[in-house]
Amino acid sequence: MENPIVEVNNVSMMFRLYRENVDSLKEFLIKKVKRQITYEEFWALSDISFQVNKGESVALIGRNGCGKSTLLKTIAGVLKPTKGSVHINGTVAPMIELGAGFDMDLTARENVFLNGAILGYPKEMLEENMPAIEEFSELHQFMDVPIKNFSSGMLARLGFAVATIYTPDILIVDEILSVGDYRFQEKCHARIHEMLEQGTTLLFVSHSIDQVKKVCNRAILLNQGHMLFDGGVKEAWNRYDSL
């Protein structure tokens, strides 16, 4: 039997919410040494466990603040869980935050190489695929413009084009398809379907039932850091609506 491509085992994530307002790192360190810093523990995730097999397309759904993005970041390796473990058996292309992996002072072309390097793509491969990236993103005349001048939709186009120019084992998409025009969103959905047909595994966050239905065959419902349901998209969304 094939091993799961993603294994999330009893994952919990705790953040410290500090009560004091400090104006500098020096002040924070002094207060910490004097034990004048107090905080509350906030558990963003509590004992989450599930497995994803190769080729599955899984949506993470739930209200804002339920832990979806935190869970994706632990799977992508951006965050280390406080408890539990995550095992990944393959390459990951994460699209978790708009503009993540970009330098706003660099041009779009320069950011293709920067973001591509972060994703582990060789420079030669990026150079070879630059025309395809320009074509998919539809940013031909803006490739040598600093991206600090880009709209959120243009950033999404560039990030998606770079992340999907190569077919990763696991594609992680967090709400990035909610920006930009409808036609480009449909273009992204078509690219995702192509990747799924080639065996890519998808972890997808969206507040749109239409988007989830288009690309996912399974959904995991989170609420206040707890996993409430793992199964069919329709039933998961019905439970989501009843929260």
Rank of each mutant, 00 (worst) to 15 (best):
A236S: 12
H87L: 13
L79R: 01
P94F: 07
Q211P: 04
L158C: 10
L158W: 10
L25D: 12
L221Y: 06
Q198R: 15
P168A: 12
I165P: 00
I220R: 04
A108T: 09
K34A: 13
L29I: 14
E138R: 11
G84L: 07
H207K: 08
L45A: 06
V6W: 00
A156G: 05
A219F: 01
A236H: 02
S57Q: 08
T201M: 07
R218E: 05
N89L: 12
H193V: 09
A108E: 07
S46F: 09
S208H: 08
L106C: 06
Y39L: 03
P81K: 02
G153P: 04
G153Q: 05
E175M: 04
T107C: 12
M1Y: 06
Y121W: 09
I192K: 01
A156H: 00
D47C: 07
R16E: 14
D230K: 05
N53S: 14
E235P: 11
A108C: 09
F229M: 05
Y240E: 08
D210R: 08
K83P: 01
T107N: 12
L71F: 06
T74R: 00
V92G: 02
L29R: 11
Y39R: 06
R239V: 06
F42I: 10
K73C: 11
A117E: 10
T167P: 04
E110R: 02
N223E: 14
Y182Q: 14
V6H: 00
G90N: 07
N238V: 09
A132R: 15
F136E: 03
E2W: 00
R19P: 00
M154V: 12
A161R: 01
S178H: 13
Q224N: 13
V22I: 12
R19D: 10
H226V: 09
